[in-house]
Design a protein around this nucleic acid. Structure first.
Length: 359
DNA sequence: TCTGGGGTCCTAGGACCC
DNA sequence: TCTGGGGTCCTAGGACCC
């Protein structure tokens, strides 16, 4: 594969869910808005910038947020509404880029390479995209343009909200070196702690670290880590791939204690999963259940089927079997119950029913 | 203050087979 | 009597992302 210099863009809507709520509800504008699970076990999806000044951020328990900002506006997400805006943005990106890689409702990568060599034109086009998104959605976004995905995303992050940042190849090292290692895509809390333990605090430290140290500590991942710290990333943009799993799970306000009730919930979730499977015309060969105990210990049990299926009764029965036979339940009950299917495939002619559709 | 829901990818260990 | 090497498949758990 030839390695052609690229100009990749990344667009990130600013505090997206909260911004949509503020647009739809003028009374919310200028106030701290927190889009979150409203129950006692809910967490924050998105905090508006007003809310962030109270130290509220994504993934924070709603209870904590309420404590920090009792007068905030707390609302549950309306994904259908967000999807509408998301589609507008995607359409705009699609009119400038041959391939748009959607990461989530509020984030996407796009490719500006064909607009010409160098960064002059790419930057101009990206500016235009940003302007159009703003005028067509009335929402602000942040845009990064760089030689690859990883740097483009970093660019949009470094200059938000309402940001615009171009990172050219000769600026990469100077820009990355002082950044904390936690900014590397794929470095979460655990890896960050391990890196700190090794005395590697900034990207520069990883860039200069001996490869055998990184490889000893992180195995295969070590080399990738160093590449990212140097700003190297050759992964191409990809259109949304076929999904590899489908799942439904729920955390209950009160722990579910009775085994019959747990099985009932499992069956209901299994039916929803099967429904979606059928809706997407897919078959599964793995069924799994997930249980989280009150102490947050979490386990999964899965089983492989001999033939791929989308049959509601089968998926329901296997899920019920797994939780009955393979999960230890006691009087403490469970806080979360989940059902999922995996190893998805499209039905082939061979798998079509021989004597008509049994449904 | 107490930890969502939807995903992806990776690793390790055991069973099994030749 | 005391234990190979390589491969595949399956399961479970964990890190990570938005």
């Amino acid at each position: 594969v030839s390695r052609i210099a690229r100009r990749i863009g990344h667009l990130d809507m600013d505090a997206f869910y909260a911004a949509v709520e503020q647009m739809d509800h003028p009374a919310y504008r200028g106030r701290p808005v927190i889009v979150c699970g409203l129950g006692p076990r809910g967490v924050v999806s998105t905090a508006s910038y007003e809310a962030r000044t109270y130290g509220i951020h994504s993934a924070m328990p709603t209870a904590v947020a309420r404590k920090r900002c009792p007068d905030g506006v707390y609302v549950s997400p309306r994904f259908d509404r967000y999807r509408e805006f998301s589609q507008v943005v995607r359409r705009i990106l699609g009119s400038y880029s041959p391939v748009v890689e959607t990461i989530s409702l509020d984030e996407a990568f796009f490719d500006l390479t064909r607009h010409g060599a160098g960064y002059g034109t790419a930057a101009r086009v990206a500016r235009e995209i940003k302007r159009r998104v703003q005028s067509e959605t009335r929402l602000t976004c942040s845009v990064g343009v760089a030689p690859n995905r990883y740097l483009a995303k970093l660019g949009s992050e470094l200059d938000k909200p309402d940001g615009f940042l171009v990172i050219q190849p000769d600026q990469v090292q100077g820009m990355l070196d002082p950044l904390p290692v936690g900014r590397i895509w794929g470095v979460g809390e655990v890896t960050e702690r391990r890196l700190h333990g090794l005395g590697l605090l900034r990207m520069r430290d990883i860039r200069l670290a001996p490869m055998d140290l990184l490889q000893r500590e992180f195995g295969e991942h070590g080399q990738r880590l160093q590449e990212l710290a140097c700003g190297i990333d050759d992964t191409p943009l990809q259109r949304a791939a076929e999904s590899r799993s489908i799942s439904r799970e729920a955390t209950y306000t009160f722990d579910v204690t009775h085994p019959d009730e747990i099985e009932g919930e499992i069956r209901a979730l299994a039916r929803e999963v099967a429904e979606q499977l059928q809706h997407q015309s897919l078959l599964c060969r793995v069924v799994r259940v997930k249980i989280r105990y009150p102490d947050f210990r979490t386990l999964t049990r899965q089983l492989r089927l001999t033939v791929a299926t989308d049959a509601e009764q089968l998926i329901e029965a296997y899920a019920a079997h797994l939780v009955r036979e393979r999960v230890t339940l006691d009087e403490r009950g469970v806080r979360l119950i989940g059902v999922g299917v995996g190893d998805l495939s499209q039905p082939s002619a061979r798998q079509l029913p021989l004597f008509g559709d049994p449904r």
